[in-house]
């Protein structure tokens, strides 16, 4: 009797799930909005995001804005299927494959692991893939083939310059990074290469998981670093609040790598705006979708403009004042 119940339950579960799946799949691609040009083919875009994360969410928002700026209207010119892998590589793989099976016109991979999974899934049908929020597309081997996008490479020199101006006497910058994130590893290399030019030494502590981050922060505080600088390292940014608690107590300023971190309580950042990055990505995607260009024609882009975001409250708390050279060039993070 038990066995029959098991079988029935499993069968019911599978059937319900597949039934829901089918229903969604048939309604998404062909549901023209009222008043829309029903005859025209609607582009279907599959968006695969690696996890829930303010910067990545901003990328996605920006991407959709970019499409609109290029004159594509959601529900008329395109529909999109947004899937989030919850930082699970296996789910990212299945998301890519389900996009390929749906024959989407374009896949968007937000963050490296999702982009790599989309690119692997798109290989067979040669579906174009657009990525964003990847620091080093060359290292990730996403720089050739039917793929292009935008890199969120940090303006390292601008950050070093900013720290030098705000803390003229500082000597050591402490950085926590995840050893398995290629983005972080390549950025640390750049920091170490360029720190000397600004009179800094870098004290980098590697971690392998989020659980080790606060201990790494304690280590750096014990090393008496003059400040912390963050990368766009997901593990580190994820527990930024806990790091800030420790550094505030020790009176050590923390510099962020983008505006969201400054809003959270970092003192300042020479950072990129992920919404802007997303918009740039959306504009590229629009060219590929409408056939104005192919991915091969569009080399991947980095955002050249960055802003100097500050958090005045935190700067005051650390006793740092804005030097005249920077006056007027900074943006209050809360207002950004």
């Amino acid at each position: 009797m038990k066995k029959i119940r098991l079988f029935a339950a499993l069968l019911a579960l599978t059937l319900t799930l597949t039934a829901c799946g089918k229903e969604q799949e048939t309604t998404t691609p062909d549901a023209p909005e009222d008043g829309g040009d029903a005859q025209k083919e609607m582009y279907v875009i599959g968006i695969s995001q690696y996890g829930e994360h303010a910067s990545l969410d901003n990328c996605r928002e920006g991407f959709l804005q970019g499409l609109e700026q290029a004159g594509l209207v959601e529900g008329v010119d395109f529909t999109y299927d947004y899937q989030n892998a919850g930082f699970d590589d296996n789910i990212a793989t299945q998301i890519g494959q389900s996009f390929s099976a749906q024959d989407v016109d374009l896949m968007v991979g937000i963050a490296t692991n999702s982009a790599v999974a989309c690119f692997a899934a798109a290989e067979d049908k040669d579906i174009p893939v657009i990525f964003t929020a990847i620091t080093d597309p060359v290292q990730a081997k996403l720089d050739s083939g039917n793929i292009t996008g935008t890199s969120d490479k940090l303006p390292v020199e601008a950050q070093l310059d900013l720290i030098r101006q705000l803390q003229p006497n500082a000597k050591t910058i402490g950085i926590i990074y995840t050893t398995s994130e290629p983005n972080s590893v390549s950025t640390i290399e750049e920091y170490q290469e360029k720190a000397g030019d600004y009179g800094f030494t870098i004290d980098a502590v590697g971690v392998t998981s989020q659980a080790e981050v606060t201990q790494a922060a304690d280590t750096l505080i014990a090393h008496d670093v003059d400040c912390f600088s963050n990368l766009t390292d997901n593990n580190v940014v994820g527990v930024l609040a806990a790091i800030l608690e420790k550094t505030n107590e020790a009176g050590i300023p923390v510099y962020g790598s983008e505006v969201e971190q400054v809003k959270l309580g970092c003192v300042a950042s020479a950072g990129i705006d992920y919404v802007q990055l997303g918009i740039q990505t959306g504009l590229m995607a629009a060219k590929v979708l409408t056939g104005k260009a192919s991915c091969a024609d569009l080399p991947y882009e980095t955002i050249s403009e960055y802003s100097l975001y500050i958090n005045s409250q935190e700067l005051d708390a650390m006793g740092i004042s804005i030097p005249e050279a920077l006056a007027g060039k900074t943006v209050e993070a809360d207002a950004a």
């Binding site: 597949t18 829901c20 969604q24 799949e25 996890g51 829930e52 989030n84 892998a85 919850g86 299945q94």
Partner: peptide
């Protein structure tokens, strides 16, 4: 197949592990 069906049905990724655990326990 269960995972793919759940994805297709639009189950949020954050709920995926919970669904896995529930299926596991049920079986």
């Amino acid at each position: 197949i269960c995972i793919q069906a759940a994805l297709n049905a639009g189950l949020p990724a954050n709920m995926m592990k919970l669904a896995t655990a529930a299926l596991f326990l049920l079986v």
